[in-house]
Amino acid sequence: MLRFVAYYVGANLDVALAYRAAFAAKVFAFVVSDAMWVAFWWLYFERFPSVEGYGFRQVVIVWAIAATAFGMFGGVAAGATTIATRVARGELDFYLVLPKAPLLHLVVSRMDPGGFGDALFGIVTFAALARPSLEEAAAFTVLAVLATVIITAYIVAVQSLAFWTGRAETIADQALFGLITFATYPERLFGGPVKIVLFTLVPAGFVSYVPVRLVQEWDWTLAGALSTVAVGATLASSAMFRLGLRRYQSGSALSMRG
């Protein structure tokens, strides 16, 4: 399976590099966009050194984890963001007539070049501004992968709503933007019912807050719980996709693979 995914990532990169200037421009734009936010926080903490116990280093870790996870999601699993559109247009046929698991195949079938910008920004920022210890760096790597898995599972689940609703592109886009937004703010800004939402409907808590806590202070129980969430979310979203496939209505639109 890993060889299949690796081959796909390589081929997607070839496709992206077919238009090298566009690829470079998008990577650069994402790096600049992320950097502007961190610059904003840097200016903010110059004036107010602490927000609810958060300092600049914590915010850097928040951004580094989120950017790296969303970057890896974009670089490897951006196909997940196309599920709703393809379901609505009846374009899953290609994946259904091949022996590889259609969800895996669909998820890795697209790459967002901007993901490279995000991931590059996240890793460099973490290394340069958070100045992590070796243990923190190791934890960061593992946690970024877990966060990527949770993001992918969440997006697959939301996009798969299209099997039942017919169209789910708008709600799926909002879900992704909501997750990005909440995952890049300090956890302590939110409390009460909002926090419940952030660990359920918009799982920014598992994508960002828990990983940030673990990078700063490793806890095997919490890490185990996060891993369980990642596995559970993957199984649940896969089951939802499989269930949805029973309702799939193929289409006859002309289509080419990008």
Partner: peptide, 11 residues
């Protein structure tokens, strides 16, 4: 499928 290509368009 004559109307649906399985070949990568840019590769």
């Amino acid at each position: 499928f004559g109307q649906k290509s399985q070949l990568w368009y840019h590769l």
